[in-house]
């Protein structure tokens, strides 16, 4: 039986995309395709273009050459179907909002000038429950720890009811103790939605994704089963100590408590 048409449209398709900030090239001639329900990690050195690639997929930046299609349409048209968790929230710590307020912002696109409906609240609560933070709903957002905030922002992205989830460094502020739990949650999500995770932590992501995209001016794609020391060396270039450390860890395939 042929699969439905909607499954054949790739979640994200990049064709010969190049982007530069002024004179500085960030991404050169990048082509790839991500199928629906694929789980992909973007790794690579700082300044290699990971965040730029995410912003291109979100349509916040426009490539100088090449085309990007998200769910078969332009990034701007597909925006509402993408849930995005930014790495840094340019957020004013004295801004008085509750956790529920923040998660409800995932629903803000559908309310017009009006109020959030009971349905919006239900979806927000469900997103929080999925990340095991529903108990925090009435707390002030600025009273949370970094790791809790991270989860709230993922819940906010989920409250968009996305088909694609873009997570920029989801483990950046998570303490090693809860990382494993976090990992289980993300793995669970990957069964339902297409997940793109930016991470510096290859050991973490390689267990939950099927492919790793190494972003460093260009994009090289590696199935996780093929990750070898050589490839990892290539990804990170000169940063050998960090690569060895990571590599060690992923070979043993255990907890990441000893990663820097």
């Amino acid at each position: 039986m042929p699969s439905p048409v909607s499954l054949q449209i790739p979640a994200v398709q990049c064709e010969q995309v190049s982007f530069s900030y002024g004179e500085i090239p960030i991404l050169t001639d990048v082509s790839f395709s991500i199928q629906k329900l694929d789980a992909v990690a973007l790794v690579g050195p700082n300044g290699g273009g990971k965040s730029t690639l995410l912003k291109l997929i979100l349509g916040l930046l426009t490539p100088q050459t090449g085309t990007i299609k998200v769910l078969g349409v332009t990034p701007q048209q597909a925006r509402r179907k993408i849930g995005y968790m930014p790495q840094h929230l340019q957020y004013d710590p004295s801004f008085p909002v509750s956790v529920m307020d923040v998660v409800l912002m995932g629903r803000a696109g559908s309310i017009g000038l009006g109020r959030y409906s009971a349905e919006d609240r239900r979806i927000a609560m469900q997103a929080m429950a999925e990340l095991a933070v529903d108990g925090l709903a009435s707390r002030p957002f600025n009273s949370l720890s970094g790791g809790q905030r991270q989860r709230i922002l993922i819940a906010r992205a989920l409250a968009c009811e996305p088909e694609i989830l873009l997570l920029d460094e989801p483990t950046a502020n998570v303490d090693p103790g809860v990382e494993l739990q976090f990992f289980e949650i993300l793995k669970e999500l990957a069964n339902r939605v297409t997940v793109l995770t930016v991470s510096h932590d290859l050991g973490f992501v390689s267990q939950m994704v099927s492919r790793v995209f190494c972003v460093n001016r260009q994009v090289k794609i590696h199935p996780t089963s093929e990750l070898t020391g050589e490839i990892i060396h290539e990804m990170y270039g000169g940063d050998v100590r960090m690569v060895r450390h990571d590599h060690c860890c992923s070979e043993q395939g255990h907890s990441h408590a000893d990663i820097l």
Binding site: L58, L60, R79, R80, I82, Y84, P86, L89, Q90, Y91, F95, V97, D101, V102, L104, M105, G106, A108, G109, I111, L113, G114, R115, Y116, R156, C160
Partner: peptide
């Protein structure tokens, strides 16, 4: 008051609000 919810979303995180189609 009418724009309350959306205005908060825009004031709190403009980029995210834009991505929600606001």
């Amino acid at each position: 008051l009418l724009s309350y919810n959306r205005m908060i979303a825009v004031c709190f995180d403009e980029e995210f609000a834009r991505l929600r189609g606001i």
